[in-house]
Design a protein around this nucleic acid. Structure first.
Lengths: 251, 251
DNA sequence: CTAACCGATTGACAAACGTCAAGCGCGAAG
DNA sequence: CTTCGCGCTTGACGTTTGTCAATCGGTTAG
């Protein structure tokens, strides 16, 4: 559970910032959160937004701060994590085009999680005040926000169930099965994140993740560095016993 | 983490059901979720709703089912719990006037948790279809739903942080501190739920909750059955090290 | 009043998990 | 090519936690 906090700041690098009005926002427009919003409202959001590029391992937000921006991962990857004294734990790994800190922005209360980039990442940042403003005025946006929050809420419920009802190695086994599905059910794939981050997300020490990966050799998995091969999927499923209400994502 | 599932059905008892139009709904009307809704819309919700009385330990909903009703605890107490094979774990203890399964109702997807009463309890049940219908038509209700979901989402984030970053006894110590605040900072109070349920909520075996309560004797707590006395709050706080971003509820 | 029941408690033991320390291996910098 | 750094791995050990079994104690039914 406890992972020593590691350095995350890159002081030398000045992230490049590009106003959103100058960039292509067709893709953003099609996200579920914005798809049904009125054009004039969307323009309000765009007006103050900008796209920013960050290097790897850069802290984006810190828990306890008040939200300034709604964040959207355009490319790269972001880790949400919580801290307690010198320990931390990953709560989510976000890929394009996930939004984050929506709940804090809407309620205008402090962040409960910190966030850092896991690799070079571009983030679209929309001023929190604009989001709240459009949220009040545009019913379609309010409804989309509900859908997004409900989705995220359900993801967390599944996470809690998995964490409280399974052992570490079971969580790992099911994670690999889910990852394999995401990658088109191929027998071989790469872990998308560093193992220490995965360990933190799965709620285990990095040392135990190593040992668990070795143990899964007995259950149809072969590991070479970050390359995973599922030799015998039926066998792995027998061990992992995946359950739709924990492992299957919402539609 | 693993608690054996126990019997929950009371087949003999037929819950009494009272149409909501016949009852006093002033109190419901003032809940944040309904406060700003248009009167005609509120009447739509009321039309199909009814108040139902359940005995203790009765299963109200089962994970995997599709939602028929939005539930509101009018009095009594309800446990939300998740299951995996023969184990279960409590995700939340709900008191008046909490709503539950809102996310499932809005998304019209299966429940991820089951629910049972912990004592004799009255539940207001609003048909899911009516909720979704009003949600589409009434912007104020949509906004209130966002606020409610965001609130619940943040509660879950705090829970996950506590679960992953603290040991069982630390979670217990902080739970007692929070409970004491709720009860007006009195030195003595009763546990509001059975210890086995508390153990499940705190993610520990009942046996370990017993032992943890004994251990807290060294840290300013005295326990006699379900009566808790905090003899030395400063001492308990030193041990528990509560943290606002985990233990303080949203406004 | 007595017996049966059930949640809580206690003890003994085993499994899961974290911590510490040492060493490995691969990629980057010189 | 060599060295260095860092994430990963491995082993040893201790703590936390779960499990099994027996017992306690308060409540309830007869």
């Amino acid at each position: 559970m406890t992972n020593v906090k590691r350095e995350a700041t890159v002081d030398m690098v000045q992230p490049r910032s590009i106003p959103m009005r100058d960039i292509d926002h067709k893709h953003i427009r099609t996200l579920p959160l914005f798809a049904d919003i009125a054009s004039t409202r969307f323009d309000e959001l765009v007006a103050g937004a900008f796209l920013q590029r960050f290097p790897a391992r850069m802290e984006l937000i810190r828990e306890g701060d008040l939200p300034d921006f709604l964040h959207i991962v355009v490319d790269g990857a972001v880790e949400l994590f919580g801290t307690l004294e010198d320990s931390e734990t990953a709560l989510a790994i976000l890929k394009p085009s996930a939004t984050f800190v929506l709940a804090a922005v809407i309620r205008d209360e402090v962040y409960l999680t910190s966030a850092r980039t896991l690799q070079a990442t571009r983030i679209l940042m929309i001023p929190a005040a604009a989001v709240r403003d459009v949220f009040i005025k545009d019913a379609a946006f309010a409804r989309a926000t509900v859908s997004e929050l409900a989705h995220r809420y359900r993801d967390l419920v599944r996470d809690i169930k998995g964490n409280k009802l399974r052992t570490g190695i079971e969580r790992l086994a099911n994670y690999l099965l889910r990852l394999q599905e995401e990658r088109g059910a191929k027998g071989q794939f790469e872990l998308p994140i560093e193992k220490r981050t995965l360990a933190s997300y799965l709620g285990m020490a990095p040392e135990n993740l190593s040992r668990a990966l070795v143990q899964l050799g007995e259950h149809g998995v072969e590991v070479k560095a970050s390359k995973i091969t599922i030799i015998d999927k039926a066998r792995l499923r027998r061990f992992a016993r995946p359950q739709p209400l924990i492992d299957a994502p919402d539609a």
